[in-house]
Amino acid sequence: MRIGILTGGGDVPGLNPCIKQVVYRAAEDGHEVIGIRRGWQGLLAYNPDDPATHDECIKPLTKIMVRTIDRTGGTFLHTSRTKPSRTAWKDAPDFLRPSGKYDEDEVNDFTDHVIKALGHMKLDVLIPIGGEDTLGYAARVHSEGFPVVSIPKTMDNDVPGTEYCIGFSTAISRSVLFINQMRSAVGSHERIGVLELFGRHSGATSLVAGLLSGADRVIISEVPFDIDKLAAFLVEDR
């Protein structure tokens, strides 16, 4: 079996160890792993008719090649936030752009090209590692008939169907450390410290970090709140 693997979206410390373990397990079972560089951008930039783009977009992964990648954070395959189903002409590679006049800001769906690229790479299955956007497009690729096995990776811990994502534990530990470090300054000046954490529409990071750090109040996006009542609570807490 020939397996493709890519990383998309933000980088987290667990990506390289994950890639390494996929390669090791695949090698033990006699499978070949092909790394796709820069997430979905690597598939968008892959031109089946231009061999010069192949080495730029993909690389065969062996146990020797990935042996030490887990010693550093981030992703050695690199990443991007490209979403081929919503890509403007100006962000598309030259060979995909029309020859005549066109609106550079017009958004296009290049999924047909992605499927063609996957076929030209002779991949049997694709393993995308990413969060909501990366795996959202992975679901689109799967719906087009190409086999996909996704690995959730997001500091927000907001991927449906799983209780744990690569990167979440680091986000929590770093958030708790930062909150505890802020206590000295806030306490010394007798002030109220308000810290905003990431998460968009998911309050998992704020909720767990607030619980572990002993925060007095935690606001999460899933629960509406009244700013006046919150202000009164904070004054009372002080």
Rank of each mutant, 00 (worst) to 15 (best):
V33C: 10
M121P: 04
V176F: 10
K229Y: 03
P160K: 03
K90H: 12
I179F: 12
G199Y: 05
E222G: 04
A26F: 03
S85H: 09
T162V: 15
H142S: 14
V107F: 13
T82L: 14
I58K: 02
D91W: 04
R191H: 07
E163Q: 14
L77G: 04
C18T: 10
V141E: 02
R71I: 09
P128R: 13
M121F: 13
E222R: 05
L118F: 06
D156T: 04
P152R: 06
L15Y: 00
P51S: 11
V141W: 05
S85V: 09
G4F: 02
I69C: 08
H201N: 02
M182I: 08
L15F: 08
N157V: 04
K59G: 08
A88L: 07
I34Y: 00
A232S: 08
Q181A: 15
K153H: 09
A231H: 10
G35V: 06
A231R: 13
Y164L: 13
V208C: 04
K101E: 10
T111R: 14
E144H: 15
V159G: 03
G187E: 07
K229M: 07
L197V: 02
L177A: 15
E196L: 13
G100A: 15
I5P: 00
M65H: 04
P147I: 11
H201V: 00
D158A: 02
G100W: 01
V12R: 03
E222N: 04
A231F: 08
T205Q: 04
Y102V: 15
P17M: 02
S206A: 03
T162N: 12
D103Y: 14
S202L: 06
G9P: 00
T205F: 04
T72D: 01
N16T: 03
A215E: 02
I151C: 07
P93T: 09
V33G: 03
A26W: 02
T162I: 11
L135C: 12
L195P: 00
P224K: 01
S85P: 00
L207E: 01
D91P: 06
I227H: 10
E196G: 11
L135M: 14
D11T: 12
C57E: 03
G10D: 01
T72Y: 08
T68W: 09
T79Q: 05
F233T: 01
P224E: 02
F76S: 05
A26V: 05
A171F: 07
Y164T: 11
K229F: 01
Y24F: 05
A215G: 08
M182G: 12
K101Y: 08
G30L: 09
M155I: 04
I151H: 00
V107H: 13
I227P: 00
P98S: 14
G9N: 06
M155G: 01
F168Y: 03
N47W: 05
Y137L: 15
E196P: 04
K59P: 00
S188F: 05
G42M: 12
N47I: 05
T170M: 09
S221P: 03
D237R: 15
S184L: 08
F178W: 02
G42F: 12
F95W: 09
Y102I: 15
V186Q: 03
M182T: 09
S206L: 01
E236H: 14
T111N: 12
V208W: 04
G161K: 06
D49V: 10
